[in-house]
Write a protein that binds this DNA or RNA. Sequence first.
DNA 1: CCCCACTACGTACGGCGTACGTAACTAGGA
DNA 2: TCCTAGTTACGTACGCCGTACGTAGTGGGG
Lengths: 254, 254
Amino acid sequence: MAASGRTARPEVIWARPERAARGPRPAHTRAEIAAAAVRVADAEGADGVSMRRVAAEIGCGTMSLYNYVPRKEDLYELMVDAVSAEYDLSAEPSGDWRADTLALAAQTRALMHRHPWLPRLMSPAHGFSPNALRYLEHFLRVLEPLDAGGGTKMELISMVNGVVSTYVVNELSEAERARTSPFPPGQEHAARMAHLARELSRGEHPRLAAVIGAGFAAVDLDAQFARALGRLLDGFDPARVSPPPGPSAPRSPA
Amino acid sequence: MAASGRTARPEVIWARPERAARGPRPAHTRAEIAAAAVRVADAEGADGVSMRRVAAEIGCGTMSLYNYVPRKEDLYELMVDAVSAEYDLSAEPSGDWRADTLALAAQTRALMHRHPWLPRLMSPAHGFSPNALRYLEHFLRVLEPLDAGGGTKMELISMVNGVVSTYVVNELSEAERARTSPFPPGQEHAARMAHLARELSRGEHPRLAAVIGAGFAAVDLDAQFARALGRLLDGFDPARVSPPPGPSAPRSPA
DNA sequence: CCCCACTACGTACGGCGTACGTAACTAGGA
DNA sequence: TCCTAGTTACGTACGCCGTACGTAGTGGGG
């Protein structure tokens, strides 16, 4: 049985050597394939990324792609890692972990705006790709001034990314839906809003009607984003939160 | 052109009458279809839910399903609404919005544990299904003691749900991956961990190695969940956050 | 030098969403 | 009451998808 035999093994793609010891030189590189897939996803959305489509994009037969990427899932992993390379981690930590964290979150948000398929294709299992490691290490460096255990810091990173992802998905939801919809843009959203208004006018859900009637339309998204994250970080900031009075759990023991 | 003609229109499924004015009595109900789809998803995962599979489940031809559900997307919407009915919203708000919010979040977490496909199939566009309205209204009622504007309250709801979703996806990630994986359970995760250990032993990423080496394995998940959400709520709690001090980044100006 | 691992690629299978044609049925208006 | 138009039910078909597998050619290590 060959080491990197034909039938897939439970192997991380990053552990596969890019170039085999024997045989002809591969006609393409992982980076090239990842870039092609990212190009397709940017242009046509996550559903546009198919093995056939990406193979065509780099100009090879469909099944040749499987020499580089044993399963489609691994293609996703390549894509996520590729765009993670867009993080600019060159700035030295300022010492203000709050500000640095907000800056990192802003980069994530911008990244997801550039690549709206990212939240959908990202998975916790991709957490250890090369560029994810770079990112995590940098984040931990940024958090060094924060007085907290390693577990808490990982928790912070995870929650910040979760909130950013949630936030961006909400931000982009209408636009993405419009792109996928077979109807003229806006029409689907209009139908949805009309239904909501009709439903709220029935008098049940008075609080919701009040909140929505007050119109949360013309909000400054950037400010709202910063405020939401600020609130989250407040919860981790020993300088801003009064010590846990009652039932809150103690710090994680060593 | 028929009102609910054959070709789909940009219509919310909840605005479609379940029973048409004319024609034969439909052999199935929306609730029955939603329950069947939920059953399939619970048993076989989100990818198991296909129009063919669900049609077979209720015992009708594939294309007959399209009389009830114009697009697959709408089937998802039915499913999400159906499981949202599992929320127990009968308890009167206690007056302690923090405790009530944590209880709601715990219900969401339990719901997602019962239906692991929920995070993947839920979309911001489903936010106004009948049971979603019930849920939102109840949440706003719970938040009445909180001194904040309607926009802030919606923000809180959105962020709580985002964090819960992120948290559960992380919790269930390994199990879900194992269910999908074509390999013996655990083998894929083992390969991933082996690669991580190999990579961290190379000496770059020292902080990450330290944190992971310290082992964040045997943690109490329930406590961690409560702590994470508690931190988030801290940020919304006027009673717990000290007014913006000096050194840390100032609040975003109005 | 030669062997064989590796590359490239076409064919084929089973599954998907869904457009469309057709037949049976049923309620409202004449 | 009967007619007719709209609805239900359902099979067929199209163009996608992921990918197992067979085959031919290539080039580096023993």
